[in-house]
Amino acid sequence: MPSITADSFKTSFLPTWCPGCGDFGIWMSLKNALANLGIGSDDGFLVYGIGCHGNMQDWMKIYGARGLHGRALPVAQGIKLANHKLPVICITGDGDCLGEGGNHLIHAAKRNPDITVIIHDNQVYGLTTGQASPTAQPGFKTKSTPTGATDTPINPLTLGLTAGATFIARGFAGDTPGLTDLMQRAISHKGFSVLDVLQPCVTFDKVHTYGWYRQRLYQLDKEGYVPDNKIKAFEKALEWGDKIPIGIFYKEDRPTSEEVEPALTGAPLKDLPLTVSNIDGLLSEFI
């Protein structure tokens, strides 16, 4: 059997992202991570959101679903319950999963399905040509906030922490090796992993450029940070400004939503027989 490489996911389509878009780095890292984990085209499932990020689907040969704007997570959970042996990863955007689908992120975190969600965090709605996203920093000027954003931005990390996600990390699209490693850890984590990826949108964000991030980013693990404490994770997750941490903020073992389902102790649901063996027993309550 040929071994899996980043090239295994090649399709006949070429990316349509703007040259220099942070999505390239995320895409590259994902292919590397999957290859390193031995997950090939037939072995995993990607659920994409709607946005520039989700366009990845056409240049990613692996089983997948591209549903509605904001609804990647419910689809992902459905797939996971139908076939809990299948690795499931969500490719989503800050608009997709913190705006339109914010509720789903909270509830997925609470349930803790063994799913990894990768948030392409670019502070804008790229595909609809540059409006503010829920993570837009105060003062950030976009097409929908011409005098600067006024709201408090949503912080995907603290949101994930409060909602109950069991793996919380942040990566940078401009650091492919580091991001690949984070992705591998997120995917390998048994439980709900939230990986926020700082992703420069070179077309609609002239502020948060690669350089802007590089000046500020620092690696949590290099500081001796151990991701086992929720309160400390909060403190770190709230850091933003001159110094911005990346790496794993928090990790916890908790039963997954699949593990707590009595029907999912053995073969996946999809392989179970359709027939009811004890019809009499089933009907006895109605006599």
Binding site: V47, A65, P74, V75, G78, L269
Partner: peptide, 12 residues
């Protein structure tokens, strides 16, 4: 959307 996901996954 969950039900659609499960259906794609192969269950009724």
């Amino acid at each position: 959307n969950m039900a659609i996901g499960a259906s794609i996954g192969g269950v009724r």
